[in-house]
């Protein structure tokens, strides 16, 4: 049974995974038995009562109250039980402990951004302390996304016009994939992220180190690299020349660009600035207008830094 469970389900890495798994297996087993019963009856009847002569006469059995009550009441009891179990597990998922550590999650086409209480922003990677409840306060910057960590058995949609929440507690350190499960466009299946569960002490160190990266006195290009990582640009733009959902940054600055409307231009500073702030003003031929606008999201200094970083990728 354990092996069957391990085959069907991913690793169980949150405190409520085992409850969900228990219900999953319960329905599988009781449903499996039912299916087995029906299948046996179908095969047995088809063989036992096979028509052997053309003039066979069958008995007139119109109904049987006892049988009908039985196969109404037994499933009724089962489904009420399943409902109650599912409700209990779900209620736990909806009610985060009061002392939970809070992280703000932003979904955008096509990446994740995690903002910590001290102002640190992490792109793509959600780093959390092991053994401590974490509450996610989530919203989307554009269309609907959905935050799904199979190993935690949690999933929650991110809406553009309101906050939604979810929480989890991962007892052990480890890494777990994040999927987007609400269709959001061409980069939907590439909108992956990672939850990195680390021991508490290591988490504190990481948080302090990240904080230092956002300080104002960093060299521009280095700040630009941090912005690149934090904003999740790498979900669509590579720095090694490979094509993604958007054009690569390698060799971008100063190159000649041709656009979907047939025009072309040189990728100077102004072009780069426009592409970041009004992303779909000019769309490079061969790509879809999929990038969200960063107007109001990035400060002027961050834009400058990002341009400096892009120029470095030659």
């Amino acid at each position: 049974m354990e092996r069957l469970k391990d085959y069907f389900l991913p690793e169980s890495a949150s405190t409520f995974a085992s409850d969900t798994d228990g219900l999953f297996m319960f329905i599988n087993i009781s449903g499996g038995l039912l299916l087995l019963g029906i299948t046996i009856a179908l095969i047995w009847f088809s063989w036992k009562y096979k028509r052997r002569r053309e003039d066979e006469v069958t008995p007139v059995i119109r109904h049987s109250t006892i049988l009908e009550v039985t196969w109404t009441v037994i499933p009724l009891v089962l489904i009420l039980f399943v409902f109650a179990w599912g409700f209990r597990g779900w209620a736990t998922m909806r009610n985060a402990p009061a002392d939970a550590y809070e992280v703000y999650v932003t979904g955008l086409s096509f990446g994740w951004q995690f903002t910590y209480p001290n102002g640190v922003i992490s792109g793509t990677e959600l780093v959390v302390p092991a053994g401590r409840p974490v509450r996610l306060i989530m919203q989307s910057r554009d269309v609907i996304h959905s935050f799904f960590v199979p190993d935690f058995r949690i999933k929650q949609d991110l809406m553009p016009n309101r906050y939604t929440t979810a929480w989890f507690e991962a007892p052990e350190p480890g890494e777990h994939v994040i999927f987007c499960t609400e269709f959001c466009g061409s980069g939907h299946s590439a909108m992956l992220g990672k939850v990195k569960v680390v021991p508490v002490a290591e988490f504190e160190t990481w948080l302090t180190a990240e904080k230092a990266k956002t300080e104002g006195d960093l060299p521009l290009a280095e700040l630009g690299r941090n912005v690149f990582n934090q904003q999740g640009c790498m979900a669509c733009h590579s720095v090694d020349g490979s094509a993604g959902i958007g054009p690569t940054f390698k060799g971008l600055a100063g190159s000649q660009r041709s656009f979907t409307d047939g025009s072309s231009a040189t990728a100077d500073d102004n072009y780069l600035r426009e592409s970041i702030l009004r992303s779909n003003a000019k769309v490079v031929a061969g790509f879809a207008p999929a990038m969200p606008s960063y107007q109001g999201v990035l400060s002027d200094r961050q834009v400058d830094a990002l341009i400096a970083f892009i120029k470095e990728q030659q």
Binding site: T20, F24, L34, I38, W85, G86, F87
Partner: peptide, 26 residues
């Protein structure tokens, strides 16, 4: 009858709240 029974039973699975949170949109 065989296929639809499977379809129906897996519907019960998806109706159960905590399990559906995991299985929704997969």
């Amino acid at each position: 009858l065989f296929l639809f029974t499977i379809g129906g039973l897996t519907g019960i699975m998806l109706g159960a709240l905590s399990v559906d949170i995991h299985l929704h949109d997969t």
